[in-house]
Amino acid sequence: MELAAIIAIGVLFGSGIYLLLKPRLLRVVFGSALISHAVNLLLLTSGRLKRGGAPLVGDVPAPVTDPLPQALILTAIVIGLGTTALILVLAYRIYQEKGTDDLRQLRGLEDES
């Protein structure tokens, strides 16, 4: 199971990076979303998968899956939503202001350095 998850993580991350390398803002948004999936799964996998039931304490003590990565990921997912919204609005605003969503044309002033 872990091996399969690791392959999925690698592919998610690779695809995300590929999209980040692209000059269009929308694809950057997609890329960051894929990378968050990859990181979340990475966290989950690092805590071992399926070593018991869901992390709920029942009346009978039973082994449960590591709850710590789950707590970390839960907040990460919600923050991810905030990030996605922010990048989207940023992209939209940049397009409004500059008339382009091409990162190659959004490089700041030439004499800045």
Binding site: A5, I9, G10, V11, F13, G14, S15, I17, Y18, L42
Partner: peptide
């Protein structure tokens, strides 16, 4: 593609 694949492989390796 090479860079992305490398990054993916790296993360998988880390995992």
């Amino acid at each position: 593609i090479a860079l992305a694949a490398g990054a993916g492989a790296l993360v998988a390796f880390l995992a």
